[in-house]
Nucleic acid binder design. Sequence first.
DNA 1: CGCCTTACTGTACGATCGTTCAGTAAGCAT
DNA 2: ATGCTTACTGAACGATCGTACAGTAAGGCG
Lengths: 223, 223
Amino acid sequence: MSAPLSPRKPRFERQLPQERRQALIDATIESLKRYGHEGLSVRRISAQAGVSIGLINHHFPKKDTLIAQAYRHFNSQLVGGVRAAALQAPATARARLRAFFRATFSPPNLDRDVLTVWVVFWSLYRHSPEIQKVHGETYREHIDLVRSMLADLAAEAGKFRFSLRLAAIGLTAMIDGLWLEWCLDPGNFRPAEAIALCESWIDNLGVAITHAENAADTLPTAR
Amino acid sequence: MSAPLSPRKPRFERQLPQERRQALIDATIESLKRYGHEGLSVRRISAQAGVSIGLINHHFPKKDTLIAQAYRHFNSQLVGGVRAAALQAPATARARLRAFFRATFSPPNLDRDVLTVWVVFWSLYRHSPEIQKVHGETYREHIDLVRSMLADLAAEAGKFRFSLRLAAIGLTAMIDGLWLEWCLDPGNFRPAEAIALCESWIDNLGVAITHAENAADTLPTAR
DNA sequence: CGCCTTACTGTACGATCGTTCAGTAAGCAT
DNA sequence: ATGCTTACTGAACGATCGTACAGTAAGGCG
């Protein structure tokens, strides 16, 4: 092909530490999707990333550090995605929440592999202080996003029967629970039905005003 | 200490296979509570049960079989417990559901270790056909219990805005999600608040009749 | 072009994994 | 008591785990 002499192809390519670290984080999540809990070994991760085993410990002091940063990245991607979907929706709080539900219960978020990743991370939670720390921070992000949208909804539709805090907790629980159930058995219900259940929940947060206001808005449960 | 001659203490006690199997299942769950995912090794389990390593493979063909049976036992215990709590409650569907919620969000079910056990089992789901099989059967048990109580409620309080199927899915999702959130961070809300959220969900399943009927019944959210 | 930094490789190590299996002994039956 | 069945033990196997480390070479710079 090329000149036979000096231009040997290099055996590997150097990258900036921050780029390589990100590549290793991506490989961690991909390997986790493919092999489940067993995908979290340095050998599987390095094979997925196309690098040697030792490179992981060159960029991360311990394997657990890489896993915790992968968890952080995974969280940020989800929250960033659904937040973006919500913000580019029409200007009413209800429309933003609807877009938020649709993004939550659509690919790439509603994916059996993705939810496997969540469950494996959760299974590490109790015995890994690093995972706990990351969870605390990103869970707050998620709750704050939900809470801010509910606050806007309350401003439009009237007072809730619950505190904002409790309404956000309930909605998050409903979303997480439906997520989990769909992952464990996608045949039980369709994503559109999950969205309908979430919308019903926020419909009933208000007492009377909400009920009247959304008579026409809420009826089409199909997307 | 004792007589020096014939009455030597036996080095171990034989047990009936079915009893020993149950003891190993109990040890599996206990080890899982203690050590998380790492507790699912034959060495930890056998140490917990006070037997040798080889005994596990004497009673179970593979480790995965023991784990799947432990999952089944754990599921049955939960469903049996909350069903019993529901059935010994007063005769109205609402009272049974209330007792069901209380049992769900009280010890021994509402326990951080217990919920760790769930999450670890779920994390095995995708790559273990045996776990999938057990889940399919026990999940149906759980859903059927919820659905039958909701059916009774519908007979008392009027038609739901959702199908029975969807109402049961939504309630189960709410319960599981609150369970999960409380496990991951018990400081975010109190169990009584979780119960209030669940009761609010079933209150709003009916359209108008329910709302009027339970004005006095629903107010005390504290237990 | 030769030097220097350091990203990167890959073997080695000890620990632990699940499973096998030959041997031991508990405890009922004769 | 003696024998028989089999629950049970525990060493051994090969595989895989996370980490350490000595050596290699990529690629920018003087």
